[in-house]
Amino acid sequence: MKKVLLFAVVMMFSGQALAEDFFSNLFRFKGVKPMTDKLYKDSCGECHFAYQAGLLPKRSWEKMMLADQLSDHFGEVADLEEEDRIAIRDMLVADAADTSIYKRSMKIDRSIPENATPLRITETPYIKKKHKEMTDKYVKFNPKVKSLINCNTCHREIEKGIFDDDTVLIPNFGYWSEIE
């Protein structure tokens, strides 16, 4: 009897786990592909949020990761060891927006004119459009936000590649869904 009971309990929990897996897989390609690589986080995430590869197209990452570009990375020196530079560039290129099957990556890529190679994520038309309502009071003059480059300050599920409106919590203001 005890064994049967134990079996039932085990089944119950594994059933739940399976169901959770099923649902998370169903929405797997909704946002952008999460990036968990340690080299990437260590090399880029020391100074700023380690932006996912799926936020810019391949040509943008190829340009940004040139050695000369890294020496003047938006005014900062971001030099990397040559082997790391190549490894990170390849990682970014492999999951870039224009090769991604993630919904938001596809939208970002489609919004960029073919002849443009943006280096700033905040200057891609899709991201610009999505932040149209983010006026200075929420961002620039909000000491806890300051700039749109600090994505993770408001996008609380960003590590999972989720950018949905209901995950946006603006410091000093609250959930976006409640402000709107």
Binding site: K38, K41, D42, G45, S71, E76, V77, A78, D79, L80, E81
Partner: peptide
């Protein structure tokens, strides 16, 4: 998350010497 004490990683020491001396 993932922060490590200073002076425990040669690669990191050299990386930041290079970046910050240049800056």
């Amino acid at each position: 998350e993932g922060d490590e004490p200073r002076y425990t990683d040669v690669k990191k020491i050299e990386k930041w010497f290079k970046r910050n001396c240049k800056w």
